[in-house]
Computed example of a mutant assay.
Amino acid sequence: MNKKVAVFRRERFNAAHRLYNPRWDDATNFRVFGKCSNPHYHGHNYELEVKVTGEPQADTGFVMDMKVLSDLVQQHVVERFDHKNLNLDTAEFKELNPTAEHIAMVIYDLLRPHINKAHDMQVRLYETPRNFVEYPA
């Protein structure tokens, strides 16, 4: 019988970015990305949910200690991206367009090595209250 439980941790960070393709001219970038291609950037109050799924441990009853998960998100995501310009201030997005999709994938890759490999993990990133992405889908 499947005894898996999903646990979630929600954190927030604020960051600026610009969506654009450097190989395109400004008109093409604006046509594709709209106001998000503003050369002076724009910002979001991101809301991040990290989901870890597994069987609770016999000795603790935890799938994962939520304090440990919170500390991992703070250390590997919030400290790295909060109040930063993703395009200019982070190595991860120097060459990668910081779309919500890419941000979620990067966050997953930053956290996955620190989560028990026996557990499944998923990242949900809200760029706005109505726009969000999940990785893996």
Rank of each mutant, 00 (worst) to 15 (best):
I103C: 03
L72H: 00
Q74T: 05
N116L: 02
M105Q: 15
L125G: 13
F33M: 11
N131R: 08
L86Y: 03
H102Y: 03
A58G: 11
R9C: 06
Y20R: 05
D89W: 06
F8K: 08
L96R: 12
V50D: 04
N87G: 14
F30S: 06
N131K: 07
R31G: 01
A6I: 12
I115C: 00
D71A: 03
V77M: 01
Y46H: 08
L110I: 00
E127C: 13
Q57W: 07
H83S: 09
A118I: 06
V50S: 04
F62Q: 12
R31N: 05
E95T: 15
H40G: 10
D82Q: 10
P56G: 12
R10C: 09
E47Y: 05
K117L: 15
P98Q: 02
E127A: 13
D59H: 13
F30R: 10
R124Q: 14
A137R: 07
A15W: 01
H40F: 08
Y20G: 04
L19E: 11
P129N: 10
D26F: 03
F132I: 04
H42M: 11
N97K: 03
L72M: 00
H119P: 05
G43L: 00
Q122K: 06
N2H: 10
E11D: 12
V106W: 01
Y108N: 01
D71S: 03
N85S: 08
Y126N: 14
V77D: 01
M121W: 09
V78N: 05
L125C: 08
Y135E: 13
N87W: 06
Y20P: 01
V123Q: 02
D25Y: 06
L88T: 14
R80K: 15
N85E: 07
P39G: 03
L96Y: 03
A27F: 07
R130M: 09
L48E: 11
V68H: 02
N38P: 07
E95K: 15
Q57F: 10
R80A: 13
E11N: 07
V63E: 05
V50G: 11
A100H: 02
R124G: 02
G34V: 04
